[in-house]
Design a protein around this nucleic acid. Structure first.
Lengths: 346, 346
DNA sequence: TTGTTTTCTGAAAACGATTCCAGTTTTTTT
DNA sequence: AAAAAAACTGGAATCGTTTTCAGAAAACAA
């Protein structure tokens, strides 16, 4: 019960007991060469015995390295993000890095604070998926200017920024969804988009337009909605769409939450899906597979995104030259594949 | 473009420029009294100008305080956890603490490493929901023995452990689910449980038994399954249950993933839900609300759990006496409420 | 044996912020 | 005007680790 570690537990304490210097203990702990075998095992034994654990703050302060990567994400509960995070964590772990996960709750204010906190703890790099409302990315300057590499993904800066950018092929996603509906014969396609200040929605919309154009189908203003993609907003849009005929024959929603609400609404007012109305969502949220009818959606391959992010990050950390002497154009910009998953809603 | 922060950026640098001592800068930064007003504003201006940001490692090393709490969780993607985490983060933030979120991926090995990492960075406290397979909690000893408070929630130690424990009322959850089914007239109730080495499943099962007993209904061994709660395992269980008559008239599953698979299976073999088979899940996963028929389930009020956790944690951190001189019995053990949400599956 | 490498080890100076202890200035009191 | 108190500031030690530099010990060569 009263078994207590000695109050202090530093390499000095170990050194004192073994009549060695802290320097030697440190060398053992860091696998430096030129430590006598006997000394090494003596030290290791003692380290084991007293349960010594390195103080990361002292170490980091001295070496200017934390082996830690910070991640900022709007909400961890979003399926795509959860999946990406998990992959990132596993991959980083394999490379000896720890991951600090932070949620911005889609608040720019919190996002700013988080960049500061991560800088304060001097993480080796930051990975960020910004909020919907982040149009000014200058709060990341503290990081980039102090040579902490930043990788953006998902919701990325629209204007050039000195950081690596990794994004899904949103243009193609929008195109695939629209082309699919057009091919099925739909011509009055409603589109529920996110706000157009955000990179992903800009691109999805552009893809949507491209497909419509290819099928010589005009994009009707009263069939397109730019809004925060909540269920409530989707419902509002549907109320407008079905206030009077002609009804749309398809709805493409830029995320699955909206698409699910569209489906729910259609059921309520007894519109047959897919016969009278076809629906396509975005992201392949697990819910989209289990509703009835199951939902056609765009798959983003989150595990792949995670892998690409870590691969790039490791490259950057390895070469270690930091952001110095780099022009904006020197930072890679990578697009990851998307695909259409056809289900019963079309 | 070439605008560069001066290479170093410490209080020494600010002190040098202002012809003050680092001590004074520090005092300004920490709102110590007894700093001349003029000096204070001069310093603040310079801090602002050079964009000085405190080095958390140096500060933490000196003060032995990081204002950071570590959180270990099996998977952030589980809805209940995501919700709890978000609440914890927001509440902690209000108290000036940062949160480091870590995933164990339900691996005991990773969980161990994470406790070490969190100890290495000397967080002020650790909140942990352990893996299903954690039966030995000794890897948390490093923390408790070094006076870092630990709070367990959800999946908590079964044996006494010197840490605060916060758990949902799993006994009552199991009871409510079973009693609900019994009240509706079900008598052949199958139960898909998690493995019984884990606190939550022990309690849910006990609650289930209690209800069965109150209704003088025997718990039949061939209707109870102890297994990791995956969709695949749920399907296996269903295959057994529906291999030959008499079929069960209800299934209670200890989580929603299993319950959803049960529903899916029932649909496949054309069993009417709820007419022929009633189903109850656990956790109120968002998916349970949108399937057809929607799923009756046990709500755990995750936001409330998060609040309770932070309230307790702040109490502990405030009194700051640490784990010293505390017997195992001195640590609070709190149970949070659960409730039944009745939907169309019953 | 002596001289020269090669191994091994320790002393001490960092890293950046905080804080105790004095010391200096200013204000207040007598 | 002198004495006492209060307000303000700086020096220097400290937190625990890493690393450079140089010194001591061992191994090797001549």
């Amino acid at each position: 019960m009263k078994k207590k570690q000695p109050r202090k537990n530093s390499i000095h304490d170990i050194a004192r007991v073994l009549r060695l210097s802290p320097a030697t203990i440190s060398r053992v702990l860091n696998n430096h060469p030129h430590v006598h075998k006997a000394t090494r095992s003596k030290v290791m034994a003692m380290v084991e015995e007293v349960g010594y654990k390195r103080n990361a703050m002292a170490s980091g302060l001295r070496t200017n390295k934390t082996n830690t990567v910070g991640l900022i994400v709007p909400r961890i509960s979003m399926f795509v993000h959860a999946e990406i995070i998990t992959t990132i964590q596993n991959e980083l772990h394999a490379h000896g890095y720890n991951l600090i996960i932070c949620q911005s709750n889609d608040s720019v204010e919190v996002e700013k604070e988080l960049t500061n906190t991560l800088y304060a703890s001097r993480v080796d790099a930051v990975i960020a998926a910004c909020t919907l409302f982040t149009t000014d990315f200058s709060h990341f300057d503290t990081l980039t200017q102090n040579n902490i590499p930043v990788i953006f993904y998902d919701r990325v800066p629209v204007k050039p920024y000195p950081a690596c950018i990794i994004k899904g092929d949103d243009f193609r996603g929008g195109y695939l969804a629209a082309a699919h509906l057009l091919e099925l014969g739909c011509r009055r396609i409603a589109y529920i988009s996110g706000p157009l200040n955000c990179s992903i929605y800009i691109d999805r919309f552009a893809g949507f337009q491209k497909a419509m154009q290819q099928y010589d189908t005009p994009v009707l203003n009263n069939l397109v909605f730019y809004q925060e993609l909540s269920a409530a907003n989707a419902r509002k849009a549907m109320n407008k769409l079905f206030a009077k005929k002609p009804y749309p024959d398809a709805v493409f929603a830029a995320n699955d939450v909206s698409a699910l609400e569209v489906l729910h609404f259609a059921k309520e007012i007894n519109i047959q899906v897919p016969a009278e109305l076809k629906i396509v969502g975005y992201s392949n949220d697990p819910r989209s597979a289990i509703v009835t009818p199951s939902m056609t959606t765009i798959e983003q391959f989150p595990a792949n995104i995670g892998k690409v992010i870590v691969t790039e990050l490791i490259k950057i950390l390895k070469k270690d030259s930091g952001n110095d002497n780099k022009a904006v154009g020197d930072f890679p910009q990578i697009t990851t594949a998307v695909g259409l998953i056809r289900r019963m809603s079309t």
